[in-house]
Nucleic acid binder design. Structure first.
Lengths: 122, 122
DNA sequence: TCCATATTTCCATTATTTTGGAAATATAGT
DNA sequence: ACTATATTTCCAAAATAATGGAAATATGGA
């Protein structure tokens, strides 16, 4: 990933509302969530929500899928992984046994969710 | 790391000049670089540079150290690691074998610099 | 076709961030 | 004390981002 792309992704996530949107979409997986569901969960006026969804989509962090009248948005894990790779590669310590040793996440992985998505608060 | 802190760090990095500053400081290690060196490298007017250094410092991404008249800035690896941990934990795929499998950086680690001794994380 | 629903786009207003010159501060040397 | 260097803070202008009401678009159903 090049710096310009990383910068776009960082800018996409660097806003409270957008980070909240993205975090809601992460556990939602590939099916994603409808714009309306996001709007209700975050109590956002439609225009404001739409603005941030557009930003995230332009930042390459979200995919959009239409089903009837509703538009579903899903987190683009590939983009997120690429951002993490960029940060690990470019913004981590060079010494002391390589980057992995220093940058490895100190927390265990998220638990797999059950069939009905349990959502956690913001 | 809580969301508010992560947001601050993301906002810190989400600017071309600040990301450039941070990327210059990463390989510079604990001694860091003088403000003047950064200004010359990036060709920034002093006030502008100082503004961004302050932003990065307030975002917890930089440490400051004075030596005589010059101020040295260094990347705070701990903060960066915490940000990576947050993103890995909160913004990565939940399924398919856990987060590490999905979010592991697909690129090899940076090469260590041969000249200086092994350095510990800050 | 007409109406309802889901969501976006338009756009003006407001809010926030960024910029950089000039003045101020900090330190060192003479 | 004076001068030079390194860097910051002040501040106002310029640039950019965010907000949300209202109008527009897209789709589905009667």
């Amino acid at each position: 990933m090049e710096t310009k792309t990383a910068l776009t992704a960082l800018t996409g996530l660097a806003h409270a509302t957008r980070l909240a949107i993205f975090r809601l979409l992460v556990p939602a997986g590939a099916p994603g969530l409808a714009a309306g569901q996001l709007g209700e969960a975050l109590r956002l006026p439609p225009a404001t929500l739409s603005f941030h969804l557009k930003e995230l989509r332009h930042a390459g962090l979200l995919t959009q899928r239409r089903a009837g009248r509703t538009l579903y948005y899903a987190a683009d894990y590939t983009a997120m992984n690429a951002l993490l790779a960029y940060l690990t590669e470019n913004c981590c310590q060079a010494d002391a046994g390589g980057c992995e040793a220093v940058c490895a996440p100190p927390v265990p992985a998220r638990k797999r969710r059950s069939s009905s998505a349990t959502r956690r608060p913001l």
